[in-house]
């Protein structure tokens, strides 16, 4: 292993330990590591977007010696207009044009995306025969039907949650709680996986205690 690689591994190990030291309490090592991480991340993203967007998508296409494109100039001008808010209130209103373009385009695409994928197809998948298949399938179908119905009842605020209606809403809350619990459990799993990645690095690449 070259000395550059060795130095890199020791540096990464020091940063890992510095960040983990926060578990004991806030300290100067943690603060230094955090500041370096935030700074290098910001620099990385700036460089990435500069070369990918401004250079590759704009410069190379707009100044193509064979067939220069005009379309990239539209994006460039909109981008420049976005910066007008930095130069006083008199011309700041120009920044609304690119914002209007972004909001309009994004809303249009998302409306289509979510209406089809998250609304219609999901509703379609929820409406299905309950008593078909194995016993497990039937239980699963009943739970989906009951959970969907009771969940919707909980979010229906035009009627007071009392009596049978209130009971259904309470069952809806239980379904929601189970969903949040599953989501939280998965999140804990994910955080442990992140820690495992660092431990694998510390005990494997750095200390070489594991093969």
């Amino acid at each position: 292993m070259s000395w550059e690689q060795t130095f890199g591994i020791w540096l990464a190990a020091a940063f890992t330990l510095g960040i983990v030291s926060f578990l004991y309490r806030d300290n100067i090592f943690y603060k230094v590591c955090e500041a370096i991480f935030v700074g290098s991340s910001a620099g990385y993203w700036f460089v990435t977007y500069f070369w990918d967007n401004l250079y590759r998508k704009f410069y190379l296409q707009a100044f193509d010696p064979v067939s220069p494109h005009i379309a990239p100039w539209v994006g460039f001008i909109l981008g420049v207009l976005m910066l007008t808010r930095l130069f006083g209130a008199k011309i700041a209103w120009l920044s609304r044009w690119p914002l209007a373009f972004i909001i309009g385009a994004t809303a249009g695409v998302y409306m289509m995306f979510y209406f089809v994928s998250n609304a219609m197809l999901q509703i379609g998948a929820s409406i299905k025969p309950v008593f078909v298949g194995s016993f497990g399938d039937i239980v699963s179908n009943v739970l989906i039907a009951a959970g969907t119905f009771c969940g919707l009842v909980y979010f229906f605020f035009s009627k007071e949650h009392k009596g049978v209606f209130g009971g259904a809403a309470r069952v809806g809350i239980w379904f929601l709680m189970v969903t949040f619990g599953a989501s939280f459990g998965y999140t804990v799993m994910s955080r442990m996986s992140l820690m495992l990645g660092r431990l694998d690095f510390l005990f494997g690449d750095w200390l070489r205690l594991i093969s």
Partner: peptide, 17 residues
């Protein structure tokens, strides 16, 4: 998917998407 993201993706699996 990462475990954080998986619960949000399960409905697509259930719907056959």
């Amino acid at each position: 998917n990462t475990a954080v993201q998986a619960p949000m993706i399960y409905p697509y699996l259930q719907a056959g998407q």
